[in-house]
Each structure stands twice: as structure tokens, then as C-alpha cells.
């Protein structure tokens, strides 16, 4: 479904953050990009979301080159995807209003939106605090709301950037459960980043290991975790590589 070909990118002209990335994600996959902080994981997600433009290389979504879209097609493409950032970045309104946003900008009917919001609240188990202001939520609750806000538009692909960073273990397992549900029940293709290899192993169908701007290795989760070829991958997996 997603194909990345020879991707180069950097924020400063002489300092590439990504240098020659290649991989692909199949429909329904849960792809986890592992790697230490600063390895370029978030940058890849931002490229997918069209926030930034690559120096070189292509990103294909169902064989459509993301870089060759006109303004209108761009918006259409953006609306096939959704992203959850490392920080929940909620709007300063109520929980329900936050969740409804994606449908609101797509000009859905009020009744449709209300039903969908109820469904999403049930999914994340926060029906009771629908009217609560987003600024009063705990970190874990906020992250669940952010996922519901992204999922309400039923994206074909959901990008998750470090979804459990800075969460306590109890909330980590709740969020992981939620991610699994989304992937399995809704059939949403998920691309997530994590520096927690345990999490990648628990959730992902496919994993990639990003190190210093290069995708060192990628493939089936089981294979990578049991029979990695590159020594940097094995070092990361065994915990010798400090993140």
C-alpha cells in the first residue's frame, strides 16, 4: 500500500536526516519504526503527512506519488490519513468537540457526527467525560482522546508517533490495547514509531530499525527479533544500544 523509494531529507542543506530510505507497508499491516531518539523516525511520519517535502526519492500511496499532487488532490490525500503526535496536541475545547473535529472539517451532518463521537468515546472508554475540557485531562486520557480524534475519520492509514512516550505502565498497556483494536477491528493500516522494542514486538506485524538516517533492516517482526542480520539491530534489541 505504501512504498518508500530512496528517500532523502534534511532540515539544513548539508545535514541529511534521512539518507536513502526504502521500505513498503502492506494494507492492514501494523508497521513499527524502531530506533533511538534522533534517528529520524518522526521525520518519516512528517513526510508521509505532507508536512515536509523530500529532497529526493518518492513516497507512493497506492501507486500515487505524494509529491505530484495538485492542491486539491493533496487535501484529498491528507484526508485518507490521520496522525497522532507524540504530544496529544488537543484543541482547547471539550473532549467531544476534539473528537468531532475530523468530521466537522469534512462537513458531515450533525447527527452523523454525534453518533460517531459516541462510538469513539465508547471505544476509548471515556463516555463520562465527554463534556470535560481537554486541558483538564490526564496525560493518558489525552492520548486516548487524540487517538479517537484521529480514528473518527476512519483513515486508511493511521500514523502514531511514540504513542506511549511518557506514560505510566498502566496507561501504556491501555493504549497498546487500543492500537491493537484499531488495527484488528477497523482494519486500519498503522505506521507507528517507538523507541520501545518490547512494544514493537508486542504490537507490530512488521518492524524496521532506523539508525542514523538509514533503515538498517526491516521485515517481519518475528524474523527481525529472532534472526536480525545487522549487528546494530541486534545491539539495539539486546539493549546494548542506548536510546
Amino acid at each position: 500500500m505504501i512504498t518508500v523509494e530512496d528517500l532523502y531529507f534534511g532540515y539544513q542543506a548539508d545535514r541529511p536526516i534521512l539518507a536513502g530510505i526504502n521500505f513498503s507497508v502492506a494494507r492492514g499491516d501494523l508497521f513499527a519504526l524502531m530506533g533511538p531518539s534522533g534517528s529520524g523516525k518522526t521525520t518519516i511520519l512528517r513526510l508521509f503527512n505532507l508536512f515536509i517535502t523530500p529532497w529526493h526519492g518518492r513516497i507512493l500511496l497506492d501507486k500515487v506519488d505524494l509529491q505530484r499532487l495538485t492542491g486539491k488532490e493533496r487535501l484529498g490525500m491528507q484526508r485518507r490519513m490521520a496522525m497522532v503526535f507524540e504530544a496529544p496536541a488537543l484543541f482547547n475545547t471539550s473532549v467531544a468537540a476534539n473528537i468531532a473535529y475530523g468530521l466537522k472539517v469534512r462537513h458531515e451532518k450533525r447527527a452523523t457526527i454525534n453518533n460517531a463521537v459516541q462510538e469513539m468515546l465508547a471505544l476509548i472508554g471515556l463516555q463520562k467525560i465527554a463534556r470535560k475540557s481537554s486541558s483538564l485531562l490526564s496525560r493518558g486520557e489525552a492520548q486516548r482522546v487524540a487517538i479517537a480524534r484521529a480514528m473518527i475519520v476512519r483513515p486508511e492509514i493511521l500514523f502514531l508517533d511514540e504513542p506511549t512516550a511518557n506514560l505510566d505502565p498502566h496507561n501504556v498497556s491501555r493504549i497498546e490495547e487500543l492500537i491493537r483494536t484499531v488495527n484488528e477491528q477497523f482494519g486500519t493500516t498503522i505506521v507507528m514509531t517507538t523507541h520501545n522494542m518490547g512494544q514493537a514486538r508486542r504490537l507490530a506485524t512488521t518492524v524496521g530499525f532506523l539508525y542514523d538516517g538509514q533503515l538498517v533492516e526491516w521485515g517481519d517482526t518475528k524474523t527481525i527479533f529472532t534472526a536480525a542480520v545487522d549487528e546494530r539491530t541486534t545491539a539495539f534489541i539486546s539493549g546494548d544500544l542506548v536510546c
Partner: peptide, 18 residues
């Protein structure tokens, strides 16, 4: 306004005006 909130709006399908 937090850049991440602006990005969130775009990632949720907001056009320029939205």
C-alpha cells in the same frame, strides 16, 4: 499557538481556511 496543534488540525484533514 502551539505548532503541534496547528499540525494536528492539518493531519485531521483541515484545509487552509479551517
Amino acid at each position: 499557538v502551539d505548532q503541534r496543534v496547528k499540525d494536528a488540525a492539518v493531519s485531521l484533514g483541515a484545509n487552509r481556511a479551517q
